[in-house]
Amino acid sequence: MPAKTYVRTIINGEHVDFLCEPRQSLLECLRDVIGLTGTKEGCNDGNCGACTVSMDGRIVTACLVLGVEAEGKEITTIEGIAKGSQLHPVQQAFLENAALQCGICTPGFIVSSVALLEKIPQPSEHQIRFWLANNLCRCTGYDKIVRAVQDAATKM
């Protein structure tokens, strides 16, 4: 069997090196190789956003990134959003606004929403809905998610 590749990254602020097959996606590497299962797989073709992570400051769907492409990159996953035991305002707002039901899409929504508020600190409802259109939620009807992002924006 051909050789695996050695990949050096910074994940959630820590140096993380791992071995992977070139065909393995970053999503597989995070979940199966590194053990960070907070990033979820919903479709494996970039259409649901459940595997959203930030790579070098830009959100991407980890299913459409190869693990080997992460060489030298800085990656933030849902596990890196809180500061120690202090939840990020977006996480807190999701809790207080009941913006999750089953919770499977929640990691992706939170990573996307944090990136949105870093780019647009006071987004309009339309800007929130546009930015989050690559994140599917089947439970909430989005209403409480949009409200949670609006709420978080007032607290950041």
Partner: peptide, 23 residues
């Protein structure tokens, strides 16, 4: 009333383990 759900912290931090997360 509208308290925060008991499983909320696990679900906003990625700690909650779903079907595919078992190892």
């Amino acid at each position: 009333t509208r308290p925060v759900r008991p499983d909320g912290a696990d679900k906003v931090t990625g700690r909650a383990l779903y079907g595919a997360d078992f190892d």
